[in-house]
Design a protein around this nucleic acid. Sequence first.
DNA 1: TTTGAACTGTTCCAAAGTGAACAGTTATTT
DNA 2: AAATAACTGTTCACTTTGGAACAGTTCAAA
Lengths: 160, 160
Amino acid sequence: METENQNLIRSAQLLRSFWNVQKNIMRIVQKTAIENGLTVPQYSILMVIILHEDMTQKIVGEKTFLPKSTLSQAVDGLVRAGLLHREPVEGNRREIQLTITEKGKSLLKAIHMHEGSIHHSFQTVLEMLTKEQFQALVDTHLQITNHLEAQATEQGECSE
Amino acid sequence: METENQNLIRSAQLLRSFWNVQKNIMRIVQKTAIENGLTVPQYSILMVIILHEDMTQKIVGEKTFLPKSTLSQAVDGLVRAGLLHREPVEGNRREIQLTITEKGKSLLKAIHMHEGSIHHSFQTVLEMLTKEQFQALVDTHLQITNHLEAQATEQGECSE
DNA sequence: TTTGAACTGTTCCAAAGTGAACAGTTATTT
DNA sequence: AAATAACTGTTCACTTTGGAACAGTTCAAA
């Protein structure tokens, strides 16, 4: 069973290679978040909301995959800091609309420009990669993500 | 400045693509850890130690990038659970040698075999990728990791 | 040898994260 | 209409995390 052993080694290698990148991403994100008085979940929430300016808390939860309780408290902090505006959705008093304030927008903009931010770092990463490398990377990641998520729902169903 | 804007979009895309994979990895790792009565740091520690069977706590810290305090407490739990053996390095009473016990080895082996483990999942991922895709992925990840780490030390020096 | 600096690991505590129970709202069934 | 189930978000209690102070060890210089 040499090939099987080979596969185990390769899968560990793949895992480590993701892990090494992630380690660096988290280091940068964490540093940026703390420097701006945010927690990591709060920073994630802002980054998701800035994409659409306006989302329900439910949608934010789906995008960030944060637990409801974490999300609720993180949003609370952001509202108290004046970075987010929170109001009930009209026509559905269950859901809550989250809007980024001007203060929130300018904070995020400042963060993105700043030398050590994750976006800034990743822009320099981009400069290093060829167009083909970039595309291959994103494509393969998508393939892996889809596979892992399919596997999850599959097993979720089977276990019942 | 169209290209600059392009770059910002691409860097966000790259970040999201890593994030999506990582989300799934963490979901699987966390599930596996909990099912086996471990915390995520503890699971990480075991995975690192199994590679060499025998390491100082210092080295484990360097590999896993866990804070010293987290590492210390996680190891303590593993020792109490009988999965790890801990003894002072002879000739250097500062460092501590960590050895995986038979119980630890068999637990990890059982985990790796198990359907939902991260290693198992990643083996099925491997089957999906071509050899070239795999190699390109690992290579690009390494390139990115090196770049980000170089950037970190660079900035660390400059800021002084 | 003594002093002081650097190293390795532990302890403590404040902060952050999260599952579970909950409250209120909406949709569906009887 | 009433009852029930599903949904959305909050609260609370508990666990985990990680920075800072610490204790003991080693090394180098005086």
